[in-house]
Amino acid sequence: MSLIPTIAFHGMALAYRVSSLVHTLILRGRLIDQLTNGSPMPARHRLLGSIFYRLVGISVVFAANAFCPSFAQGPPPPGFEVLGAGTLAPKTKFLDGNNIPTNIDAFKGKIVVLNLWATWCAPCVKEMPSLERLASRLPADRFAIVAVNQDKGGIAVAKPFLDRLGIRGLAIYSDPTGRLPREYGGRGMPTTFVIGKDGNIISRLEGSADWDTKEIASYLELLGD
């Protein structure tokens, strides 16, 4: 799945190059024909041909951005799987730090990093400090780092665990029913979903990451522009 956007992008770029080549060959053919007949090639042929093929190229680019907006930001960092356009994030309910039900709609208008983790998951625990640093780096009015704990004990388990790790810069959420992984299609932990301002899932990462690297932060910031 992750190869499709890359292949499509290069395919459309190739189509534009081919159209330009065809345009050039057409002009050359007309030029030879005009020279054979002893008359110059009209300037309007050159102008109209040039406008036509460049409009084709522009249309291809606009279509790419319309059907897969992530093209505008370029490819994601290694490990991120780009999902198809229009993959709406499920409205599955989970709990905030006060055990009040919420869902992804509470963050609409922001780029959301939805991270599914558990206290018994070593890779999850390892990435928590970098996830906290990412949260402090990105402006809260444009981004939301939503780390949802999957322990059956919920907030009562997650909060003291994060306190022992010294993680106090992340908002605490829990999903003791385990519905989020099932309905979002998570196949293990940690799994992280990047969700756009419109509520559509842009990409998915299975496994841990160093979240505060320049590469990942730049990717998210471009999505937020």
Rank of each mutant, 00 (worst) to 15 (best):
D210K: 12
P139S: 05
I216E: 00
T192N: 09
K91Y: 10
G79W: 10
A209C: 07
A171H: 09
P42W: 07
L55H: 02
L31I: 04
A64N: 02
D105A: 10
W211I: 05
S50D: 03
L131G: 06
P42C: 06
T177E: 12
R28W: 11
S19E: 00
K214Q: 07
I167D: 03
I167K: 00
G57P: 07
A64W: 01
R142K: 14
V157P: 09
D198I: 15
L35R: 08
A64C: 04
D210Y: 08
N65I: 14
P176C: 12
V157D: 01
P5S: 00
V148S: 06
V18G: 00
G49A: 11
P75Y: 10
I104P: 02
S20K: 07
I4G: 04
D96Y: 09
D163K: 08
L83P: 10
S203M: 13
L170R: 00
K197Q: 14
I195N: 03
G49P: 10
F62D: 00
R179P: 14
R164N: 08
G169P: 11
V113Q: 00
T191A: 12
A85I: 08
D105P: 09
P176M: 12
A106I: 02
V112L: 08
L3S: 07
H10G: 01
S20E: 03
L83I: 14
D96E: 02
M41G: 00
A89Q: 06
L3H: 08
N200E: 01
A63L: 08
K126A: 04
G86L: 07
L25M: 13
C124M: 03
I216M: 09
F62A: 04
M1H: 10
L27D: 04
G186E: 05
L35N: 02
F62W: 04
K214H: 07
L205P: 09
A15S: 02
H23C: 15
G29V: 11
A66W: 03
E127A: 04
L35S: 04
V18P: 03
